[in-house]
Structure formats: structure tokens, C-alpha cells
């Protein structure tokens, strides 16, 4: 399993739309930038908020992701993946960096341990972000996976843990943690593909 869903070529229409939006940004088109924001603000902000648990930090990450796309649109290469995947990656990397820096800072300053995974202070975004229940933060598609795979992915992606930390946390050998993360994502890819195929049929 997995392989066939993963190797499905991207719909050429979607790749073309991504390339065109990128090219309009290269040519300094502010309208394209506003469209980019409208299309992906929710994706970028949600990822940042789910990882940082902090509304202000999430807004900062969101701003930096979109500004990077405006200032360096050519860093995105449509041939290598979707714009959605690219922005999600930038959002996640920045959010995780923030959380890890905060974690390191907390460890060195030996402050009392704050709520696990939370970035200090900030204004939480209502109950959407303060809700610590991990399950609540996962997509419907991920919740449909076997529990142990979903849990490994949540620890890595949402808590910003490395696979080594995931292994320690779950009491698994590192190799097992790595393969659970890979297998979980492969199954998620298949589930998301089916979801999109259903969408396509409805249209």
C-alpha cells in the first residue's frame, strides 16, 4: 500500500495554478500576494497555533511565512511539490524552531517547567489553542489511523519532538519510531488522497 497513492502525479492543473501564483509574485503583483494569503492563511496559522499554543507567536510565524514567500518566491519550486505543502513546511519549521528555542531557553534558565510544549506567555487564541487535548488538534484523516501511529506523529509534528525523543517518550527503539512516523504518513497520504478523490467525484 501507500506506494501507488504516493506516486500519483500531481494534478497538472493544480501544479500550473501554483506556478502561476508564484510567477505573479516574482513580478511584484500585490493582488497575487493577497490571494495567496486568503488561500493559505488558515493553513499556515493553524499549523503555527497548534505547535506553539500561542496566538501571538502563531501570528508572527504566519507573517514570516508569507513575507518569505513575497521576498523569495523563487525558493518555491512547483516541480518539487505543491504550494500548500511548501507553505505548511515553512510554517511548521518556523513554529518548531520557536518551540525548541523556548525549550532550550527554559532548560538553561532552569525556570519552572511550564505547561508541556507551550511557548511562554502570549495570548492564547481562545479555546481553540488552549485546548491541550492532542486528539482535538489532529485532522479527521489522522484520527482514522491506528492509535499508535497517530500518537507518534502527534508527538513529532505537534510537540516538535525529534524521532529520538519520540522513541524515548514511547519507550521504542529509534528504528521503530522512524518507521512508525514513515508508515503513519504513508497511510495519511492514502487517506487524504481518497478524501480528495471523493471531493472530485462530488464536483
Amino acid at each position: 500500500m501507500g506506494r501507488s497513492a504516493l506516486s500519483q502525479p500531481r494534478r497538472t492543473g493544480a501544479a500550473h495554478d501554483d506556478a502561476r501564483l508564484r510567477d505573479r509574485l516574482v513580478h511584484g503583483d500585490e493582488t497575487a500576494f493577497a490571494e495567496l494569503y486568503e488561500q493559505f492563511e488558515s493553513l499556515v496559522f493553524t499549523i503555527a497555533a497548534r505547535v506553539t499554543h500561542d496566538g501571538q507567536a502563531a501570528e508572527d510565524v504566519t507573517q514570516e511565512v508569507f513575507l518569505a514567500m513575497w521576498q523569495r518566491p523563487l525558493a518555491f519550486e512547483p516541480a518539487k511539490g505543491s504550494l500548500r505543502g511548501w507553505l505548511a513546511m515553512m510554517a511548521h519549521r518556523r513554529a518548531v524552531d520557536l518551540v525548541r528555542r523556548e525549550e532550550a531557553h527554559r532548560r538553561t534558565s532552569q525556570d519552572e517547567r511550564l505547561h508541556a510544549g507551550a511557548v511562554s506567555g502570549g495570548d492564547p487564541v481562545g479555546d481553540q489553542v488552549t485546548d491541550a487535548d492532542t486528539a482535538q488538534r489532529l485532522s479527521t484523516a489522522l484520527k482514522a489511523l491506528p492509535r499508535h501511529l497517530g500518537r507518534a506523529i502527534a508527538l513529532a509534528y505537534l510537540e516538535g519532538h525529534t524521532y529520538r525523543e519520540v522513541a524515548t517518550e514511547l519507550g521504542l527503539p529509534e528504528g521503530t519510531a522512524k518507521s512508525q512516523l514513515r508508515e503513519g504518513l504513508r497511510r495519511l497520504a492514502v487517506a487524504l488522497n481518497d478524501l480528495h478523490a471523493d471531493d472530485g467525484q462530488e464536483r
Binding site: 488538534r137 497520504a189 487524504l192
Partner: peptide
């Protein structure tokens, strides 16, 4: 493929 899947780990329904 896995990167695209990672973008679907959270349902994006929060807004700035």
C-alpha cells in the same frame, strides 16, 4: 508525497 501528507495533519480551521 509525505510532505503533502504532513500538510494534512491538522485540519486548518483556525484563522489569524
Amino acid at each position: 508525497g509525505l510532505r503533502e501528507a504532513a500538510a494534512g495533519i491538522v485540519d486548518d480551521h483556525l484563522r489569524p
